[in-house]
Amino acid sequence: MKTDIVLSGVGGQGILSIAATIGMAALENNLFLKQSEIHGMSQRGGDVQSSMRISDKEIASDLIPLGGADLILSVEPMESLRHLPFLKEGGWLVTNSTPFVNIPNYPELDDVHAEIKKFPNHILIDADAIAAEIGSRKSSNIVMLGAASPFIDMPFETLEAGIRKIFGRKGEAIVEKNIEALRAGRDFTQKNK
């Protein structure tokens, strides 16, 4: 198996927690893993991207080749489009529909959604609303991970185990909310894909 994922969003939106959870799950499954991430200046409200590569064979490059990603997982809709040149033919575009507007020239949201809908393989999900529904607004990133989980070639339970490890320090209540968020995201995709 091999899954190459481009994670994208805006600095501070929690894509590194998504990456860490997938990473834990990959270790659990004895898979090879390379995960490249952005630190430093661009974290301050700029666009951020992380490459996540998991495989049962050794991985050479830390970066995903252009046209090589199986999945773009974005916690922000405009950011999902920024990395399209990395998407493989037939790959999936899974993105939050709620925008993060911190620039004056953010495009019309309907236009952004229309661009996303051009792809037959897309999941457009209001992760913020779902996270609010389960009473854990901060978990919208994990809702997104759940929404992408059907396209990640690993047993769902290992992602849950990853969440237990990553959030375990913060207490059982937070772990449970995040697992609820993960499942809610997955359920949305299973109904809408």
Binding site: Q43, R44, G45, G46, M78, L81, N102, I103, N105, E115
Partner: peptide
């Protein structure tokens, strides 16, 4: 339509 999003 994708705009650049510089750090701030």
């Amino acid at each position: 339509l994708v705009q650049s999003r510089p750090p701030a």
